[in-house]
Amino acid sequence: MRSLGRTDKAFFALIAVATVLFALTLHVVFLRAPVERTMGIVQKIFYFHVPAAYGMYLGATACLLGSMAYLLHPTDLRDATARAGAEVAVVFGAIVLTTGPLWAAKAWGHYWTWDPRLTTSLLSVLVYVAYLVLRSFGGDGPGEKRFSAALGILGAANLPIIHFSVQKWSGQHPTVVTAKGGGLSHPDMKLAFILGLVSFTLLALAMLWVRARLAVLSSRLDRAEEDTFALDLRPHE
């Protein structure tokens, strides 16, 4: 049996820390953090809605960096990072776009409104869905990869708009987390939020790692298959 390399050990350490932090987050969110005065228990959605949004930003940033690096000098790893980033952005974006409306049903009385932050978040997720559709059905040649990289860069242009939309335009979306300290008055609320943020960040990193590794393996296998064809090693029927 193959012994674990340094990369494997680092990955399993990341998973172990993320698991412990996730369990701790659940404990603090559900058993320690107090119920909010006006919204009640539904406010606890916040502790994984906002961290999921940061997970989405992280995936989108990986997609941006991977895409830029790929356009400068194409390698399998750079393309795989961009692809993994887009996938993580879609997974966490879907969590954001479903947990948010569930909170809104209670807080606003309706699931969805065309608020600037909601609209720009939806748009961003749709851009990354388009990226994944392109990668899945648009072929896997260098031209398609370059076009996807351009889309990965374009998708990231929306991120600052999502972030600043609540400050620049009027809308219903709350601004609890601010540079001035935010509106979490109780220390256990702050603890739950910070733990959620860290555990989701580690989860997003682990997901990025796994997905990028799978994409690199797939590219290497593609090349090995092409070599067998080029060397005419395929068994003749």
Partner: peptide, 24 residues
Amino acid sequence: TESHSGTVLLVEAYVVLWVLLLAW
């Protein structure tokens, strides 16, 4: 009476989170 139960919405949100991660 409220039209939406906060507890039910919280559980729904939590279920969605895990379903999406497991689907991935």
